[in-house]
Design a protein around this nucleic acid. Structure first.
Lengths: 242, 242
DNA sequence: ATAATAGTGTCTCTCAGACACTATTAA
DNA sequence: TTAATAGTGTCTGAGAGACACTATTAT
């Protein structure tokens, strides 16, 4: 392994490799899914051909900041440019990457994938695929990505109990029944309609956005997130523990 | 800016500087304080003589992981070896360090400083000092440490509302009135004794540890944290929002 | 009309907070 | 005894959940 040396300041020690990885969640076909990419088959690369989280090295010329870097990777893989993006954590040690001491900054994104959006891989392609979160263990992910992904899923499941995060998994405008359905998909259980509506409306993070007509039944009020930079938090969890 | 490309593995690009910083909290003299260190006066160094969070470069020979590195820095500055240590986040961009593109992994520690513990700086020394969190703005901190510290304080204040974190600011065994006092110091407001006791005991994260006699009054039950690796979370916040 | 979906009203039960009360210690 | 602190009992009010009800649409 080679070191980058310099003169003046005492900066001549070996620097770790620095990467960014993004855990991208979306709800597709009534299931919570995560986007995985296939690593190159090149035998020079670590974990050739294995599935992994989208990510890569920080480019000190192109990336102004870590968050920029994460947003860039997300844009490259999905085309989405205004997602919910939050930092998940960092993982760094001597052995996680065979190429040397490395540290990755993991981000956590919630996006909406339009139904008719085939090319960016609604179904998937040879080198990228949406995988249901409870089936992701069947893939043998590269690096320490199983841990990172597990942390992301745990964080999402925890925050869904007391924040408005699932709203970011929907299109820009959505109805309360759609939002409730998204909550139920992520929580893995049904919630009471009346309590749900009270909670969402009282939290004040929604603004009305005209009526929305579905294929059947009564028209519903459409809503939009008032401030997409920040999720709302509720004073209680969804179902008090017994 | 240089970019050296090569054949085999494409690892010949400039790597960011990688550091770890630790925000160390403790309650001293009935106030929430944070430990700051003074940067060397050497004019070659960035921000000479300014106050900063304890931290430094990751040493790929000495540190097995980022968390190891944080624990090492904490041990060096305070002597404490079994603290509550959690990751706060990472900050990385082209300009935060004048020496070049750098990324820091910030950690968040809660420790107890014994009253008679003078040397590691209960009062402070020439190059390290415990500063009350609401007076920290008066110091002109180095780097982007004002943001990092603000994030740490926000995180602590938020989590105190629904977790057992303040228990880690006390000695190994403590009484419920002591714990309540710690909560009140961190929250900055009084809480009801009866509700507080119910909440703590029902959460089940404490175990009895014999009676503890104070200077006056009735003896109190001493408690210990059942599992120091993890904080308990309560299903509601302390005071529901109006 | 019916089926399907959206949205509301009401009751109940839990539980946190308020606060007054009792208990135990030292002096 | 008093002062000081530890710990408990009881009431109440807010609010989440349960669930039945009404409202609006397409066919």
């Amino acid at each position: 392994m080679k070191e980058i040396r310099s003169r003046a300041n005492n900066l001549d020690f070996e620097r770790p490799l620095v990467t960014v990885d993004v855990v991208i969640f979306s709800v597709l076909d009534d299931a919570l899914k995560v986007l995985l990419v296939r690593r190159p088959d090149d035998a020079q690369e670590p974990f050739p051909g294995r599935w992994a989280l989208p990510g890569g090295f920080v480019n000190v010329e192109k990336d102004r900041s870590l968050e920029d870097c994460a947003a860039r990777k997300l844009k490259e893989k999905t085309g989405v440019s205004a997602p919910y993006l939050e930092q998940l954590g960092s993982w760094g040690d001597a052995v996680r990457d065979p190429r040397g001491w490395s540290a990755t900054h993991a981000y956590f994104a919630l996006i909406h994938v339009p139904t008719d959006h085939e090319k960016a891989g609604r179904r998937g392609s040879a080198d990228s695929q949406w995988v249901q979160v409870d089936e992701v263990n069947r893939k043998r992910l590269a690096f320490d990505h199983p841990q990172i992904l597990a942390a992301a899923i745990a964080r999402l499941r925890a925050k869904v109990e007391y924040t408005s995060l699932p709203a970011f998994l929907l299109a820009e405008t959505f109805t309360l029944p759609q939002l409730q359905h998204t909550y139920e998909v992520v929580l893995g259980r049904a919630v009471d309609k009346s309590a749900f509506r009270k909670r969402m409306l009282d939290a004040g993070f929604l603004e009305e956005a005209g009526m929305a007509q579905g294929p059947f039944g009564r028209v519903a009020m459409g809503y939009r997130i008032r401030n997409r930079d920040q999720a709302a938090t509720f004073p209680r969890t969804f179902k008090a523990v017994e």
